[in-house]
């Protein structure tokens, strides 16, 4: 298991009058090498959950096990730098996180902190920039001279440059246009399949991530109310509206198809092209049958 949460709760300002419970008794096991999508309405604890994964927040109850490290409530945490080298976290609103004088320095910040040689860090910065589809001409610019979308991509690149084993992203697609969002999703899919990274993404665009995510976690009022495969999510889609989410269009379509043709326990086709393929096969099978009857 890459990540294991046992009875984890997190309360902001636990010792003051402003206390606010963000997570309650969350139990999750996220396997290595999979792409996991996390969804939930605002205030359901998604961001808090992500920040527990690399020790930015420490649990107020329970224990978080990430790779070979354990962060348990009430215990002094181990040195967090080795954990953070392996778990890269892209925060919500990443465009607000750039601070160095040039984009290049910002991209190199992570690798250099984790002990990479300057040349190596520079090479990694370039690679990450290319992965995010930004041109090298931007490297010498001040981060504030970039456009909003560029800044967001740059901030994601700054975490990619660290080459972490586990990549955790908090709504990376928000404020990006649809094409950039699709590119980002396929990049994450590539990193997961080809480079064996474990990827965890919080998203409000469930439909866009559906064809790629291996596992789904649904958060509601600080609890993980669902954790399972795509198939499981399709079967339990009725629960989504109760969690403040609408049933994604691809799931609706697939379920109608299932109902119409009496399909059972089949791996759902959730991208438009897969769905079209499946429909063609169903239609030709039906046509074949008709011919037999005729």
């Amino acid at each position: 298991m890459a990540i294991q949460l046992e009875h984890v709760s997190y309360t902001y300002d636990a010792r003051s009058l402003l206390r606010q419970t963000a997570l309650q008794d969350v139990n999750l096991e996220l396997a290595e090498g999979l792409l996991t999508g996390i969804a939930g309405s605002s205030g359901s604890g998604k961001s808090t959950l992500l920040q527990l994964l690399n020790g930015i927040l420490l649990p107020t109850e329970g224990a978080v096990r990430v790779l070979d490290m354990t962060l348990a409530a009430g215990k002094k945490p181990p040195k967090l730098a080795p954990l953070r080298r392996r778990v890269g976290l892209v925060f919500q609103f990443p465009e607000q996180q750039l601070f160095a004088e040039t984009l290049e320095k910002d991209l190199m910040f992570g690798p250099v902190n984790f002990g990479a040689a300057p040349e190596d860090a520079a090479a990694r910065a370039r690679k990450a920039l290319k992965q995010m589809g930004l041109s090298e001409g931007l490297l010498s610019r001040h981060p504030l001279q970039l456009s909003g979308g560029q800044r967001r991509k740059a901030a994601i690149a700054s975490v990619l440059a660290m080459d972490p084993d586990i990549l955790v992203l908090d709504e990376p697609g928000a404020t990006l246009d649809q094409i950039s969002r699709m590119e980002l999703t396929s990049l994450l899919h590539y990193l997961c399949r080809e480079e064996g990274k474990t990827i965890i993404v919080v998203t409000h665009h469930i439909d866009e991530l559906l064809p790629y995510a291996d596992r789904w976690v649904i958060m509601h009022e600080g609890r993980a109310v669902f954790h399972g495969t795509r198939r499981g999510l399709v079967d339990e889609a009725e629960r989504l509206p109760g969690c403040g989410l609408s049933i994604p269009q691809p799931i609706r379509c697939w379920r109608e198809l299932e109902a119409a043709y009496g399909l059972q326990a089949e791996e759902p086709c959730l991208s438009p092209s897969a769905l079209a393929d499946r429909m063609v096969r169903l239609a030709s099978a039906a046509a074949g049958k008709e011919r037999v009857y005729a």
């Binding site: 690399n54 925060f91 910040f109 992570g110 902190n113 984790f114 975490v159």
Partner: peptide, 13 residues
């Protein structure tokens, strides 16, 4: 704090 957290997350806590 947002920036500090991002810095911490990138190895400068």
């Amino acid at each position: 704090q947002t920036i500090l957290k991002a810095q911490a997350s990138r190895g400068a806590d």
